[in-house]
Amino acid sequence: MIELKNVSKTFYSKKSAVQALSGVSLNVGKGEVFGVIGYSGAGKSTLIRCVNLLEKPTEGQVIIDGTDLTGLPASKLREKRQKIGMIFQHFNLLKTATVYENIAIPLKLTGLSKTEVDERVKKYLAVVGLDDKSDAYPGQLSGGQKQRVSIARALSHEPEILLSDEATSALDPETTESILDLLLRINREFGITILLITHEMHVIQKVCDRVAVMEGGEVVEQGSVIDVYAQSAHPTTKKFIDSQFPIEAPESMLKTIAGKGPIVKLSFVGHSTGQPVLSEIVKRFDVHTNILSGNIVQMKDESYGRMIVHISGETDAPKAIEALKDAGVQVEEVNLDDV
């Protein structure tokens, strides 16, 4: 559906050149939710803006549904863009127009009749749950409501693709959840392919099927979300994932256990909890386990859990670890200073 081939983008100014993207290739399948994550300045916005050619790539191809957009004349590009919706961090609504007009004006400009416009506006306002706000001005709405209006505006053109540039970054956690739920629903109900960018792992975990991690204008790792969680290789990816598994054990406790048996990081894919395997090894071996921290994140269709466990019982600890590995748990020994 969306295919980026070796896309590079360099911004030239009088004095310098900034290479925002270098040789990025991505492939987003039809009906998929694809996330791009990276720290500030990684080139995420530039990347997503290249997809609808708001930013013209210096090199490479942007192929949407088989058509290379980089070679299209302006009028053909406009036609294509009408089928690619986009939502933004700052909503980008007309401040001087009502919610209704914000959706209706672009529709009218694409040549729809008045009754068609009216039908679409009402339909998509209902989809985003704002049917009662059609006469309000954006200034009278909350951030979450504004984002819903902008989602309705994007949907009203009945696009096949929705691009989301940090759509939840300006929202509080609760509103973020509701907007993410809405995006998931849109993906499932209308089969719209979604490409989103974010700097929050939580967003990736909750709604994405696949993810690409960006740094310094390059994709450093990509794959299905669960694989990336289970086998991340790049330090940046690890940092993003670690941010969801904070170590909560108090400093004093860490000091008392230092040197008394291994501390291991256990990762589980699919299991709802690691508890049963842990009690199993305590029964089978002469060890005690002490959970320093643990968290489970729920992904679209799987869960991924991680625990930091202190295993005491010097002689049996290695055997216990082997047993854990046999049970399909990923075990990684960690240094206290690293956690």
Binding site: K80, G85, F88
Partner: peptide, 12 residues
């Protein structure tokens, strides 16, 4: 941003 949103929607 608003101008950009309209460009992204394929407006003339």
């Amino acid at each position: 941003g608003i101008i950009e949103a309209y460009e992204a929607m394929g407006m003339k």
